[in-house]
Design a protein around this nucleic acid. Structure first.
Lengths: 346, 346
DNA sequence: GCGGGGGTATAGAGCGCTCTCCTGAAGGCC
DNA sequence: GGCCTTCAGGAGAGCGCTCTATACCCCCGC
């Protein structure tokens, strides 16, 4: 970094061998005389040599890096970009994605390159970066159903794996959760508990996961003789959960069961209920979704539908590395099953 | 990516000019005949050219990327690495750091490369990656006072900026908070409120921020005639806050004021107090630290000491880019002032 | 004793870009 | 009108690495 960094050439001279031999020792290729290997290794030690990443990338066409892109609808104004970033991290969800991704990449000595494609400008930027080979592939977490980024990446021939099925078909691999099944579990749990007046707080309906959860919930309710379920749309945030519950409570004071499309909103729901003098779960049962840190932090601890985010993210990363290495050429999908976690709230 | 990507050479041929001219147009260097510029731009359009990042990096010695390293004590066993990652993201703190860093990098078209240096292996890995030029510099967030990484990076000549002052002096820039002042505010607020039996839940004492907060708190308490403050050590997590409060309550049932070294623990403290039939703030006043999302999510909302994490992270990123560009050569430090945010808990 | 074979090290050609140096044309000045 | 300055564009030398093709060596077998 500071003074002129030693190059392969320097090491080769120091060791009295050719550049190619040093390169072989470093990359562990083919058999090199063990004695020579030692000589080379000592020369590396002495010179403090570290291979130049850019030079290597130039010829191998690999960066050993994958982009982790959080992609919005792309309608965020430039000046609101930071708010988007802040909101993304307010939900424990994204942290879990990172955890899962890192779990897969780490043993492979790869790192995620964090990108946010929320505004039109940043989306173009992300696309460009990938086309320029800043990373070997992309992991995309869309926060909106109509995200155009996956299609753009597919067109550009960038190896890409998505978290959640794209709303329009795109020839890319993805991982997803059986959201409908999860919502069904929530509905059945509330019904089996004896709840008769059940409402639901959905996620933002521009997100396909929200749509699916709502559809699955309604479907099960209908099957069990409840054709009409009061609905309020939230934004996956604590505040929005509180607001939605306030509204629902005003219209349906006799509510005795709530399904919130994520834990953060469920937490907000619980807070409002308590403030209005309703006991959870005695007066009103509440079921959340995700089984995130918020579910355990909530009082009472939330009964929730577990989404194995870390595992899903890990598999997403695995699919990507497989694509990059050419092990896998056709797009696949891996759908995970949710699981009901019963705690105190319902 | 897929078929042979077009190179500068191809564009030059297409436009009927030399490689150098195309390069000049792309990089906006020197004056190129506007008419020619158009020709070149059209050729770029037609060929779908995207400059190769690695080739450019090789000669410019820039990657337009900075490493964001979360660094632990380095004593994590390899198999526990994922738990470390998960824990890092469980606290909203790190998300705020990312938000702040991204706020600065984004307008400069740079991205953070996420690294975790928790085990000895990953620390070596991170150091190597930087020495190889994977990134132009490093932003280090240490979770432990004795983190050896900063010194290693400094030795390697890697431009580096730290979040929090290193425990041993290292010639690196850093941003930090006046933790003692923050703790003083907390102490004074509790005392001014009339609390007489005050206890504190510290962060892990291997973290210098925890030590500082504790020292500042004790100091102020002593000045105000309270030489002895019961202490329980927590781990900055909700659970540890609950456990610490349980212990304190067992020994000091007459407690009427608590200072917790972060909001997550303060939230745990509130939960335990409520479970034990104590009302917050009527029976016991609770002050947190950070002013994170947890402070607002908590019931009652937490009175807390605000740490402007996003801003600090943003400045950290700015200092780094300045170092990289050579604008700044000597290490500096920027210390932020905390601020008491009064809500319902105290 | 000599030809062949297995395997190890070297030479050197790129990878795609930037940037310095150089050429040549245009314009200004005496 | 000739000479010098100025500036636009081109040629080409790397940046540091990988990897193929080639030279070399030693040993074996006939």
């Amino acid at each position: 970094m500071s003074r002129q960094a030693p190059t392969l050439e320097d090491v080769a001279r120091e060791a009295g061998v050719s550049r190619a031999t040093v390169s072989r020792v470093i990359n562990g290729v083919r058999s090199v005389d063990p004695a020579l290997q030692d000589v080379v290794r000592q020369a590396i030690e002495r010179t403090g040599y570290a291979p130049n990443r850019a030079a290597r990338s130039l010829v191998t066409r690999r960066t050993e890096t994958v982009a982790l892109i959080v992609s919005g609808a792309g309608d965020v104004a430039d000046e609101d970009e930071n708010a988007f970033t802040a909101q993304v991290f307010a939900d424990p969800f994204f942290g879990r994605v990172v955890t899962g991704v890192v779990a897969h990449l780490r043993p492979r000595s790869m790192h995620p390159l964090l990108m946010f494609a929320d505004s039109a400008r940043t989306r173009q930027q992300a696309l460009n970066d990938l086309r320029q080979g800043s990373a070997d592939g992309a992991l995309v977490v869309s926060t909106h159903a109509d995200d155009p980024l996956p299609a753009l990446l597919a067109d550009a021939g960038v190896p890409t794996v998505l978290f959640a099925r794209p709303s329009r078909p795109v020839p890319l691999s993805y991982v997803d959760l059986a959201h409908r099944d999860g919502a069904r579990m929530a509905a059945e749990h509330l019904l089996d508990r004896g709840c008769r007046k059940i409402v639901t707080v959905t996620g933002p309906l521009g997100v396909s996961a929200s749509q699916e959860r709502l559809a699955g919930f309604r479907d099960t309710m209908a099957r069990r003789g409840h054709p009409y379920v009061p609905v309020a749309e939230g934004g996956f945030t604590l505040d929005s959960g509180m607001a939605a519950m306030s509204d629902l409570l005003a219209e349906h004071p006799d509510v005795d069961g709530v399904f919130a499309a994520n834990d953060l909103m469920a937490q907000g729901v619980c807070q409002i209920l308590r403030e209005r003098g309703r006991s959870v779960p005695d007066d009103v049962a509440v079921v959340g979704f995700d089984d995130s840190a918020a579910a355990v932090a909530c009082r009472p601890p939330l009964t929730t539908v577990r989404q194995p985010v870390e595992e899903m993210a890990s598999v997403m990363a695995r699919l990507l590395t497989e694509h990059i290495q050419g092990v896998r050429t056709e797009p696949t999908s891996v759908i995970f099953d949710p699981e009901l976690v019963v705690r105190a709230s319902a």
